[in-house]
Nucleic acid binder design. Structure first.
Length: 321
RNA sequence: GGGAAGAUAGCCAAGUUGGUCAAGGCACCGGUCUGAAAAACCGGCUAUGUGGGUCCGAUUCCCACUCUUCCCA
């Protein structure tokens, strides 16, 4: 069974660079698990473009390379397009299988900060087999939360009891699933076992977590924000606006929404940078909260002097073991 | 030196015509998450400048002080 180290951690913990170094050492290839890096034309603000690092970056059409280490999982969708966790799952499943059969002598590293994607890919969680119904979502969007809850209760009392009743997005998805169940009850029990179990017999995942004190993490993102601001972030967002994506999904996330506001003159530079920093701090907290639920993660402190050596040894023992 | 305005949490900022537990936002901290996840959502957290006075009772009214901002000299 192929052993795959999964390198995870909050933003700014240095996942990518250590993954590249490990890949050089263990002749590996990287599969990214990042919900933002999947979008084309969103490179600087998502950290695809390493700023201030010495990596030589190449953007080949189907993958990127960092110092000749191939990185997959970038540019899977057009910016502004709908791209779900399940879309990622499907893609990643195939990519893992493809890469491992194509060259069994090479190692694979999964690297990412999107816990949801990682847990889906490694089979820790499964999703209901109900695809999004955009027409329905559009309809539900204009309905009040209270009414949505009533509607959900009628369709599925069980779902009603489970959902976070204050979270409209969740309630909408619950309705989406519940109404689908009316048609085909098999989806209830039939989760995404298929694709996940596919991998279970082929791969063994080992979680490697990167962490550090909050203040250190915060300081690092803060510096990153200032760097990208001067190194193409504004141009990148302006370009997305020029493509007519100013009001699209890709402008809803951290960094982009704020730069968008800045370009629209709604916020001044210093405030914009501060907002982005705070948003990222909060994101780091949420990422760490998510990762805490996985007891199988072996954590490494990025502040330790022999950090890289420790991780390297650990990876060595995984691959040897 | 004279005058005006104002002092509420780490920061911004309400309110109480005097009466149980003093809004809200930001930061920070904890948490939720089953096809939007850098999304969406929940919870926690600290305060009435100092000293007097009036009053049953003061954060609110009065006085002094300190500090801040502004105006005039």
């Amino acid at each position: 069974m192929r052993k795959i180290p999964v390198i995870l951690g909050p933003t700014s913990s240095g996942k990518t660079s250590i993954a590249v170094e490990l890949s050089k050492k263990f002749s590996g290839r990287i599969v990214s698990a990042d919900s933002r890096q999947v979008f084309k034309n969103m490179d600087v603000g998502t950290g695809k473009t390493p700023i201030g690092s010495a990596f030589e970056v190449q953007n080949l059409s189907t993958y990127w390379t960092l110092d000749d280490v191939p990185v997959f999982g970038y540019d899977l969708a057009f910016a502004g397009e709908y791209f779900s966790a399940n879309d990622y799952l499907l893609w990643a499943n195939n990519k893992l299988l493809e890469l491992s059969s194509e060259d069994p002598s090479k190692n694979l590293f999964i690297v990412g900060g999107t816990g949801f994607y990682i847990d889906l890919l490694t089979g820790r969680i499964k999703t209901a087999l109900v695809p999004p119904n955009f027409v329905l979502r559009e309809e539900l969007k204009s309905i009040s939360l209270e009414e949505l809850l009533v509607r959900l209760k009628n369709f599925s009392p069980e779902k009603y009891n489970q959902v976070d009743k204050q979270n409209k997005v969740r309630v909408m998805r619950a309705i989406e699933i519940a109404e689908n169940l009316q048609v085909d009850n098999s989806v209830l029990t039939n989760h995404t076992e298929d694709s996940a179990s596919n991998l279970e017999n082929k791969f063994e995942f080992y979680y490697i977590g990167l962490t550090g004190r909050r203040e250190v993490l915060y300081t690092r993102v803060d510096a990153w924000v200032e760097k990208v601001w001067e190194n193409g972030l504004l141009e990148e967002v302006q370009n997305l606006k020029n493509l007519g994506l100013g009001g699209s999904l890709c402008m809803k996330g951290i960094v982009y929404k704020t730069v968008n506001d800045f370009l629209d003159g709604k916020i001044v530079k210093t405030d914009a940078q501060q907002r982005i920093k705070y948003d990222l701090h909060s994101y780091i907290r949420r990422q760490q909260t998510w990762f805490k639920r996985n007891p199988d993660i072996v954590w490494f402190d990025i502040e330790e002097l022999d950090f890289f050596q420790k991780v390297t040894n650990h990876v060595q023992s995984i691959l040897d073991g």
